[in-house]
Simulated scan of single mutants.
Amino acid sequence: MTQTMHLAELNVGRLVAPTDDPRVADFMNNLDRINGLGKRMPGFVWMMEGSGEPGTGNTDVKLDGDPLFVANLTVWENYDNLKTFVYQTLHKKFMDRKAEWFEALADKHFVMWWVPAGHNPTIDEALARLDHLKQHGDSDHAFGWSHMTKQDDTL
């Protein structure tokens, strides 16, 4: 049976300093390592790519023209594959250190949604989903981790 839907996710953050600043060097120096790990994980489908320059990840994709805002946009076969990568790999150690490299954002900065298999979302599409989540909360259109956890609990 062919899988018809995949899970897209967008995570945005605002760096505490420019990408060439020593305060974010450990983050920048490990982007290729963590992104490469994600790409090798079971269930990984697609990642928005930046310039292709080593050590830059997607940091050249500027949000609202702000060079400190960075975005990560990926697609996974399913929720479990994404959750495994985020919480059960080296990625978690870097995620636990995000306060060193990123400002605390008052608004939601992470969103997931289902896309047809084979569809690679654009950054504009992803930001629209994030805006929907901010305005309406969790729904089938746009949701966060807690929405999926609630679904897990009802299975």
Rank of each mutant, 00 (worst) to 15 (best):
residue 1 M to F: 13
residue 1 M to P: 14
residue 3 Q to T: 12
residue 4 T to S: 08
residue 6 H to Y: 08
residue 6 H to G: 02
residue 6 H to V: 01
residue 6 H to L: 06
residue 8 A to W: 12
residue 8 A to R: 05
residue 9 E to G: 03
residue 10 L to K: 01
residue 10 L to S: 04
residue 10 L to E: 03
residue 12 V to Y: 06
residue 15 L to S: 05
residue 17 A to L: 13
residue 17 A to S: 09
residue 18 P to T: 12
residue 18 P to W: 11
residue 21 D to N: 15
residue 22 P to Q: 04
residue 25 A to L: 14
residue 25 A to N: 09
residue 26 D to P: 06
residue 27 F to K: 05
residue 29 N to Y: 12
residue 29 N to D: 15
residue 31 L to T: 05
residue 32 D to P: 12
residue 32 D to L: 07
residue 32 D to W: 14
residue 33 R to G: 04
residue 36 G to K: 05
residue 36 G to L: 03
residue 36 G to C: 06
residue 39 K to W: 01
residue 40 R to H: 00
residue 45 V to M: 03
residue 45 V to W: 02
residue 47 M to H: 00
residue 48 M to H: 11
residue 50 G to V: 04
residue 52 G to K: 12
residue 52 G to E: 06
residue 52 G to C: 05
residue 54 P to N: 08
residue 55 G to E: 13
residue 57 G to L: 04
residue 61 V to R: 09
residue 63 L to S: 01
residue 63 L to Q: 00
residue 64 D to A: 07
residue 67 P to M: 08
residue 67 P to R: 12
residue 72 N to K: 03
residue 72 N to I: 07
residue 72 N to F: 08
residue 74 T to N: 02
residue 75 V to T: 05
residue 75 V to E: 01
residue 76 W to D: 02
residue 76 W to Q: 03
residue 77 E to Q: 10
residue 78 N to Y: 00
residue 78 N to V: 01
residue 78 N to M: 00
residue 79 Y to L: 10
residue 79 Y to M: 07
residue 80 D to T: 02
residue 81 N to S: 13
residue 82 L to F: 01
residue 82 L to R: 00
residue 84 T to K: 03
residue 84 T to Q: 05
residue 85 F to G: 00
residue 85 F to S: 00
residue 86 V to R: 01
residue 86 V to M: 01
residue 87 Y to N: 08
residue 89 T to C: 02
residue 94 F to Q: 03
residue 94 F to R: 01
residue 96 D to N: 13
residue 97 R to P: 05
residue 99 A to L: 08
residue 99 A to K: 09
residue 100 E to L: 09
residue 101 W to T: 14
residue 102 F to D: 06
residue 103 E to S: 10
residue 106 A to W: 11
residue 107 D to I: 07
residue 108 K to Y: 08
residue 108 K to M: 14
residue 110 F to H: 12
residue 116 P to Y: 05
residue 116 P to E: 09
residue 117 A to N: 05
residue 118 G to A: 03
residue 119 H to I: 11
residue 119 H to V: 13
residue 120 N to Y: 14
residue 120 N to V: 15
residue 121 P to M: 00
residue 123 I to G: 00
residue 123 I to D: 00
residue 126 A to L: 06
residue 126 A to D: 07
residue 129 R to T: 04
residue 130 L to M: 07
residue 132 H to G: 02
residue 132 H to V: 04
residue 134 K to T: 15
residue 136 H to W: 08
residue 137 G to F: 14
residue 137 G to P: 10
residue 138 D to W: 08
residue 139 S to Q: 06
residue 142 A to F: 15
residue 143 F to H: 08
residue 145 W to N: 09
residue 148 M to A: 07
residue 148 M to V: 15
residue 151 Q to L: 14
residue 151 Q to I: 15
residue 151 Q to N: 03
residue 154 T to E: 09
residue 155 L to R: 03
